[in-house]
Amino acid sequence: MTTKNYFPASENPVADAGGGLKRVVAAYNTNLMCVEAHFETGTVAALHSHPHEQITYVISGKFEFKVGDETYYISAGDSLYKQPNIMHGATCLQAGTLLDIFTPHREDFL
């Protein structure tokens, strides 16, 4: 993968992930990826796991997150860490945007 340093928003396509979820991949390289996730109220991100470490920062909205055996109610300014292979999912309680950081990058998002 060639290293790219600048990712203008006008060149970052919006991917419709279905069910009220839209995703915009921003900056990334082999080891790191930044993704905006836009949720409509009521959207459910089903429980899943992946081998990536993930940090989620709430830009706006309200969400119920399940991470492992814990449930968290989070809103703007809150953040979560998800270790590799842990089951996690979310329900959007109020439309909003999350900023997800993954390491390494998510090949399935490209």
Rank of each mutant, 00 (worst) to 15 (best):
M1V: 08
T2R: 12
T2H: 07
T2L: 09
T3Y: 11
K4N: 09
K4G: 00
K4T: 15
N5W: 10
F7S: 04
P8T: 12
P8R: 10
A9W: 07
A9T: 11
E11P: 03
E11V: 06
N12M: 14
A15C: 09
D16M: 10
D16K: 08
D16L: 13
A17S: 08
G19T: 04
G19L: 02
G19F: 02
G20S: 07
L21S: 02
K22N: 13
R23P: 00
R23T: 12
V24D: 04
V25N: 03
A27Y: 06
Y28W: 14
Y28L: 11
N29L: 06
N29M: 07
T30V: 03
T30P: 00
L32W: 07
C34E: 08
F39M: 02
F39P: 00
F39L: 03
F39H: 02
E40P: 02
G42P: 05
G42R: 10
G42F: 09
V44P: 02
A45C: 11
A45I: 02
A46M: 12
H48I: 10
S49L: 11
H52T: 06
E53R: 04
Q54C: 06
I55G: 10
I55W: 12
I59C: 04
S60H: 08
S60Q: 09
G61Q: 03
G61A: 10
G61P: 02
E64D: 12
F65H: 01
F65M: 13
F65S: 00
K66C: 08
K66F: 01
G68F: 01
D69P: 00
D69R: 10
D69V: 05
E70W: 03
Y73S: 12
Y73R: 07
I74G: 00
I74M: 05
D78C: 15
L80I: 12
Y81H: 11
Q83R: 11
P84Y: 06
P84K: 05
P84F: 06
C92P: 01
Q94H: 09
A95F: 05
G96T: 01
L99W: 02
L99T: 05
D100R: 01
I101V: 15
F102K: 04
F102W: 05
T103P: 03
T103N: 15
P104L: 10
P104Q: 12
E107H: 13
D108K: 10
F109P: 06
